[in-house]
Design a protein around this nucleic acid. Structure first.
Lengths: 239, 239
DNA sequence: CGCCGTTGTATCGCCATGGATATAACGATG
DNA sequence: CATCGTTATATCCATGGCGATACAACGGCG
C-alpha cells in the first residue's frame, strides 16, 4: 500500500479562497480574451464561470475589465491584479512542490532542551538543534535534503577545527559523514552520507559542487544545516 | 489586500484521498471507541460516517475492527494501519506547515544559462544559480528564508576571499549584504539584508547565531544559499 | 428469552453545486 | 437602424452530498 502525500494549494484573500480551478479560469480568460471563449475552452458553463468572476470581484475588487458591445461584441481582459494573483499562486504551488518533492532524512530522538520554538534533540547521531513543537518530548527530526550544506572535511576530525570554522556562520548543526551513495543526474546530484549508528543523511547538491568537493564513494565530508531548517515532529508516545 | 497562502493536505492511497476530515473521524473513533459516539462528538450523522468508513475500507483494506452485540452493544477500534495513517497525515501536515510558514525572498531575472534542471539567472543583485523550469526565460527566483546561511563578512570585500572560502562548500550562491532589520523573537530572529538595487533578502537564524555573528543594524554580512534551495518560477512574458 | 446499545443498510428529503436555456443590454460597424 | 458577438441575469433542472429516520442483525447478560 503506497501512500502518496498530496495537497491542494489555495490563496485566501479576505473571505474568498482561490483554488486551482479559479486560477485556470483566469488564465483561460487571459488566453482567449473573453469569458465565453474561456468557458468553452474549459468545458464549463458560461453562466457558472461568469458568476464566479463576479463573486471574485465582489470579494477582492477589480480582477477583470469587461466590455460589451462593439464591433467584436466586446471581451474581457485581466487586470494587473489578476495577473499578479496567478503568479502568486504558481509561485506558491512550485514552492510547495519543491519542498514536497524533496526527500527528507528523519532522525528519531528526544527533546532535551527547549527555548521558545527552538530545542535540542538527542538523537543516535548526536544532538540536533531544531524547531520543536510546544509539547511532547518524543520526536522525529526531519531535515530536507536541499537544506544540507556539504563542506570539505578539515582533514583531521578534531572538533576544535569544526567549531572554529562554524563560529562565523549561522550553521548550528554539523556532522561528519562518509559518502555511501552518489546519484548524479543532469546537473544535480543526490548524495547519501553515513553518519554512523545506522543513520543516513540525504543531501542534494549541484554537479559542480560535487566536483569542487571531489566527492566519491567513501569520501569524508562535513554536513551542516541550520537549526531553522530542521523540524521536529511529535511522535505519539503510546506508539 | 493581503494574500494568505494556504493549502489542504491529503494522503492519496490507490483511488481514495484522505483529507483532514477523515483523519479527524478516525481520531474521534479512536477516542470514543464507537462510530456512533464519534459521529455524535463530531456533530456528523452516523449514517454518513459509517458509509465513509466502509468506503475507506473498500479502498485501502481493514482500518477498523468493528464488533456488534455484547454486553456493551459492541464498538469499533482502529487497526494499527489506521493509527499509522493518522501519524503520516500529521507529519505531512507539519512538514508543509513549516515550509509554507517560512517567508521567501523573490528576485526577478532572466535565465541566461541552463543545464538540465539547473540554471543561471541574471538578477539586479547579481547572478543566481537556481533550479529553473524547462521553459521560459523570464523568471522570479524565490529563496526560502530558512535556507540562507549567514557568515561573517571577511572584512575586506575582496572576491578572492569569498571564492577561497566557498571553494570547499556546496554553497553556490553568495551575496554581500547589510543588515537593515532584525526582528528577534524567543529564540529565533528574522534578519533582513539589503543586497543593493532595492532588493532585500530575508533570513531566519537562531538567537545564538545572531549573537555569535554579532549582528546589528548596519552590519556587513555574507549571505549564502545552495542552488538547490533556490527555485525559479516562470513569469508570463507578455506581462 | 427479552433487553440493550451497537453495527449494518435502506430510504427519504433538504440543499448546494453547477449545467442548460432563455432573454436583455451593449456598442461599433456597415 | 439592423447585425453581431459579447456581457449580464434569471430560471429550471439534474446530480450529489449529507442529515434524518427507520428497521434489521448481533451477542452478552439478567
Amino acid at each position: 500500500m503506497t501512500v502518496e502525500k498530496d495537497y491542494q494549494t489555495e490563496l485566501t484573500i479576505g473571505d474568498v479562497t482561490i483554488d486551482r480551478q479559479d486560477v485556470e479560469m483566469l488564465a483561460a480568460i487571459d488566453d482567449h480574451g473573453s469569458m465565453h471563449a474561456a468557458a468553452d475552452a474549459l468545458g464549463r458553463s458560461y453562466a457558472r464561470l461568469q458568476r464566479r468572476v463576479v463573486a471574485l470581484e465582489d470579494a477582492i475588487g477589480a480582477v477583470t475589465e469587461r466590455r460589451r458591445g462593439g464591433a467584436d461584441g466586446g471581451g474581457t481582459e485581466l487586470t494587473p491584479v489578476a495577473r499578479d494573483l496567478i503568479r502568486r499562486f504558481e509561485r506558491h504551488q512550485t514552492e510547495l512542490d519543491g519542498v514536497a518533492r524533496a526527500t527528507a532524512s528523519v532522525f528519531p530522538g528526544t527533546v532535551v532542551d527547549r527555548t521558545g520554538e527552538l530545542g535540542t534533540v538527542e538523537t543516535p547521531v548526536g544532538q540536533i538543534v531544531a524547531l520543536v513543537p510546544a509539547d511532547g518530548s518524543s520526536v522525529q527530526v526531519s531535515v530536507r535534503s536541499d537544506a544540507v550544506v556539504l563542506s570539505a572535511s578539515s582533514g583531521s576530525t578534531s572538533d576544535a577545527d569544526d567549531t572554529a570554522t562554524t563560529a562565523q556562520t549561522s550553521l548550528r548543526n554539523q556532522f561528519a559523514g562518509t559518502v555511501t551513495d552518489i546519484d548524479a543526474a543532469d546537473a544535480i546530484a543526490s548524495v547519501t552520507l553515513d553518519l554512523g549508528a545506522s543513520h543516513t543523511l540525504q543531501t542534494v547538491i549541484t554537479q559542480t559542487s560535487l566536483e569542487r568537493l571531489a566527492l566519491e564513494y567513501g569520501s569524508e565530508v562535513r554536513a551542516s544545516f541550520k537549526a531553522t531548517a530542521a523540524r521536529a515532529i511529535p511522535v505519539a508516545e503510546d506508539g
